[in-house]
Design a binder for these strands. Structure first.
Lengths: 136, 136
DNA sequence: CTTTCTGTGTAATATTATCTAACATCTATT
DNA sequence: AATAGATGTTAGATAATATTACACAGAAAG
């Protein structure tokens, strides 16, 4: 079983994720609604989160605290998934990317990141992989 | 945060543990009832399992498949937790241990393990830590 | 061979956790 | 002041889990 697959196993219900990330259920669902995460579902439609999902939520939280809005976060996260196979869903974001040159994109990012200093919420650095170090 | 603490964090509901271990809820609860595991509980009294709990359940399953009964499994697991601080609960098992010399204990184990060959259920080796290698 | 015990299946009922949807609130922007 | 974005809150519905009791098959003991 590949490492990637392991980290993508749907394991946690939302209650656990709330504690792990210190986000509310409302926030988590809102981020899903805005396509920042796509947690798996049980047969009964309850969300199940993977390690990768939790990592991503921690990133989202850090970016929120930096003052980024949903659109900005979407751009940042999208940049971190460079090589991705074509799917119906990813095609949409592909189109959006084509509408914007790299220069424009970077400009947007710089603008949003500088926009609000957010009174320094400690360790603003991206923490992708934080959770996987948290456990082992 | 210590490694030990991380592996003891209560994370999984019983439904996930069922899939991870391929045990039924009935089995898991029965093993708890017989003090083979002590999963944490939510405020609402629902069980929450840690990595260590799941590892232990995998061990229990392997021993069950070898033909051990609950009492035998309890002895084996107890031997694997050699140094443990005194608590009200552990005191009980301490007393039991005092009633039995090492020789007697080993004899019991050999007897039970040899008792039934269980038609070779592949890789009978103990798999403590199996889950932690499964993820990372 | 019958009886007893052990480990597990199953069903009923109660409670907890999560879901969706709607409306409220707060802050920043226009 | 008005609008929009992000989150809080509430209500009602559904899913997941808890507990308990009874059933049952196979092993153990007689």
């Amino acid at each position: 079983m590949s490492d990637d697959l392991r980290r993508n196993m749907a394991l946690f219900p939302i209650g656990i994720v709330m504690k792990l990330t210190d986000l509310t259920a409302r926030q988590i669902r809102y981020y899903e609604q805005n396509d920042l995460i796509q947690p798996a579902r049980t047969e009964g439609k309850q969300r199940l989160f993977s390690f990768n999902d939790v990592d991503r939520l921690l990133e989202i939280k850090a970016l929120i605290e930096k003052g980024l809005n949903i659109a900005g976060i979407k751009q940042v996260l999208q940049m971190q998934e460079p090589a991705m196979e074509q799917t119906e869903i990813s095609t949409t974001s592909e189109e959006k990317r084509k509408d914007m040159s790299d220069k424009e994109l970077h400009q947007l990012l710089r603008q949003q990141i500088m926009y609000r200093d957010a009174s320094r919420h400690g360790e603003g650095a991206l923490i992708r992989g934080e959770l996987s170090r948290f456990f082992h």
